[in-house]
């Protein structure tokens, strides 16, 4: 059984449908990239998978032992965060919130998990640095470590490489690949970068207000659907 199954789901704002006909499933260990142009409903779908937005029709359900609050989330960064006074450690520790539950304070094991994830992403030396003074790539690593504090099973990411320079983007892709391959963490990621999506992902979901394609990354290439977004580079 799949971690997440989406059956004929659609989403709407104020009665206007912005994404429909979504039929796909994500299994343990998959790496799904969601691609499509701006406004095609990718972020909306991510919010739907996180239960932050109800479906208009259809169903989304979790299975294979995945509970709804066991999904780690890497949101699109907001402007307010860019000058937020917080240490990297404070940010990462806040990922343990759902595990902490009703206890008011973090325990030793919360702090250990936090340290472990800082190490895992190679940022333990930045622990006491101020979040707003980190580079874009470092900030994303901090947010990734926070998401890992919330889950050992699945990560949802909305354009994690937005605003990063090419080198930092590649580093982040490699880090995510490592989490997927070595850590066994299932990945769902929104991306604008089709070549990298094909390179790293096991599955592709292409949206344009509705589902244009869902399947293995290899069959996405032969379908030719992505070539328009890639400016014909697929045929080269």
């Amino acid at each position: 059984m799949a971690f997440i199954t989406c059956q004929n789901a659609s989403f709407a704002y104020d009665g206007i449908t912005v994404a429909s006909g979504l039929n796909f499933s994500v299994c343990r260990g998959d790496y799904l990239c969601i691609v499509g142009e701006n406004g095609s409903g990718k972020s909306t779908l991510i919010k739907g998978l996180l239960r932050l937005k109800p479906v208009q029709s259809g169903v989304i359900f979790t299975g294979d032992g995945l509970k709804a609050n066991e999904i780690g989330y890497l949101p699109q960064q907001t402007d307010a965060q860019k000058d937020f006074p917080a240490s990297a450690y404070e940010v990462v520790l806040s990922g343990r919130m759902s595990i902490r539950g009703l206890r008011p304070f973090y325990s030793k094991s919360d702090k250990n998990a936090c340290e472990e994830n800082l190490r895992r992403l190679g940022i333990e030396n930045l622990k006491n640095s101020c979040y707003r003074e980190l580079s874009g790539g470092q900030q994303q690593r901090v947010l990734l470590a926070r998401a890992l504090c919330a889950t050992r099973k699945m990560l949802l990411m909305d354009e994690p490489t937005a605003g990063l320079d090419p080198a930092a983007t590649q580093d982040l892709y490699k880090e995510i690949e490592k989490l997927n391959k070595d850590g066994g963490i299932t990945i769902i990621m929104v991306s604008h970068d089709i070549p990298s999506s094909i390179k790293y992902a096991s599955h592709i979901l292409h949206m344009k207000g509705r589902q244009l394609f869902f399947g293995a990354a290899s069959s996405y290439i032969s379908s030719g659907i992505g070539s328009e977004l890639m400016g014909g580079a697929l045929n080269a």
Partner: peptide
């Protein structure tokens, strides 16, 4: 004092806090 950590979470990133069930 009692909800300091939750206030941090809501202030820093409301969507994330909501996503993990707050």
């Amino acid at each position: 004092i009692l909800f300091y950590n939750n206030i941090f979470a809501v202030t820093f990133d409301e969507t994330f806090a909501q996503a993990v069930g707050m």
